[in-house]
């Protein structure tokens, strides 16, 4: 037995149709105005905001990367500069040392030369002095000889010659 006893779900009823349409249209209006439109707007706003934030983050990251590359480049350059400077300083030092050495040598040579010169002149002075003294002594000797033993001419001559000889040798 299969009878559509009260199968009114399949019968369109004007009353229910009226209420359904009325309630649905009011619901549609209210939801659209107070709920769905504001939510959709807010979601769009937020979506844009998130997209912007992501774009900004990407940009910032790129910027950062650029800055980092620049930094490392600068560091590299600075390092090269430093080693170059170090090298130059070393060379400079060596040069200064070498120059100083040369100068010192020259100075020393000069001092030595001067000393030699001085020695030479001193020697000359001394020799002159010695000669003077010798000639004085010779004079004294001669005086003495002349004064004492003028009797023996031969012996005196010999003696005189010996004296002269000795003087020349010294």
């Amino acid at each position: 037995m299969f009878v559509l006893a009260e199968f009114n779900v399949l019968r369109p009823e004007p009353g229910l149709l009226f209420w359904s349409i009325l309630i649905f249209v009011i619901f549609w209006y209210l939801m659209s105005k107070f709920a769905f439109r504001p939510i959709a707007q807010a979601l769009i706003k937020r979506e844009n905001h998130i997209q912007d934030a992501l774009n900004d983050a990407k940009k910032a990251k790129d910027e950062l990367r650029k800055i980092q590359t620049e930094n490392s480049k600068l560091m590299e350059e600075a390092r090269a500069e430093r080693s170059k400077m170090l090298k130059e300083a070393k060379e400079h030092r060596n040069q200064i040392v070498a120059e100083a050495r040369v100068a010192a040598k020259e100075e020393a040579n000069k001092i030595v030369a001067q000393a030699n010169q001085e020695i030479e002149s001193l020697k000359k002075t001394a020799l002159l002095d010695v000669k003077n003294q010798v000639s004085n002594i010779a004079l004294e000797v001669a005086e003495k000889v002349i004064q004492k033993k003028l009797s023996d001419d031969a012996g005196q001559m010999e003696y005189l010659n010996d004296l002269v000889k000795d003087i020349n040798l010294s």
């Binding site: 619901f27 939801m31 709920a35």
Partner: peptide
């Protein structure tokens, strides 16, 4: 309808306060 309206109104208010 009332349930949905109040639920979504509440949600919409949260979005309106700060999206």
């Amino acid at each position: 309808v009332l349930l949905l309206f109040f639920v979504f109104r509440k949600i919409a208010r949260r979005y309106n306060e700060d999206a």
